[in-house]
Deep mutational scan, measured.
Amino acid sequence: VRQEELAAARAALHDLMTGKRVATVQKDGRRVEFTATSVSDLKKYIAELEVQTGM
């Protein structure tokens, strides 16, 4: 499950970095929206997932 969450989070980051205004991911069973202003929060979430998956 964590691998899927990590892939979704990375895709969301890619979307935001390429101009999409809002990206949505499932985080702990709930839907979370990230915007360009919350990229740093999304990067932290990705880092947490990488630690949890041993990457």
Rank of each mutant, 00 (worst) to 15 (best):
L16N: 01
L49H: 01
R10I: 12
A23H: 02
T18I: 09
R2C: 11
V1R: 13
T35H: 08
A8Q: 13
V51E: 15
M17N: 07
A7T: 09
E48F: 12
H14V: 11
A47F: 10
R2T: 11
M55G: 14
E33R: 07
T18S: 13
A36T: 11
R2L: 15
D41K: 06
R31N: 14
V39I: 15
L42Q: 00
D41M: 07
D41S: 07
H14C: 12
R21P: 15
A8M: 13
K20S: 12
S40I: 10
A8E: 12
V25P: 02
V32E: 08
E5L: 12
T35A: 06
E48Y: 12
D15H: 05
D15E: 12
M55I: 14
V32N: 04
Q26F: 08
Q52D: 12
E50D: 04
K44N: 11
R10M: 09
A12W: 01
A8R: 10
R10D: 02
M55L: 11
M17P: 01
K44R: 13
R21T: 15
M55T: 15
M55N: 14
E33L: 05
K27T: 07
V51N: 13
A8P: 01
K43C: 10
R10Q: 07
D15T: 04
Y45I: 09
A12P: 00
L13I: 02
R2Q: 12
A47E: 14
D28K: 04
E48L: 10
R2H: 13
A7G: 06
S38K: 05
Q26N: 13
Y45G: 01
V22C: 10
H14L: 11
E4F: 10
K43H: 08
Y45P: 00
R31S: 14
A36E: 14
E4Q: 11
K20L: 08
K27V: 15
L16H: 01
V39M: 14
Y45W: 15
T37F: 06
L16G: 00
K43F: 08
L6N: 01
D41L: 09
G19Y: 00
A9W: 02
R30H: 11
R21V: 13
K20R: 07
V25L: 10
K44T: 08
K44F: 06
Q26C: 15
A12I: 03
S40P: 10
T24R: 06
E5S: 08
L16Y: 02
D41Q: 09
L42T: 00
Q3L: 13
A12N: 01
V22W: 05
Q3K: 12
E50C: 05
L42A: 00
E50Q: 06
R2K: 15
R30F: 11
A23R: 03
Q3G: 11
F34M: 05
G54F: 02
T18F: 07
Y45M: 09
L16K: 01
E5D: 09
K20D: 06
A47H: 13
V51F: 14
K44M: 10
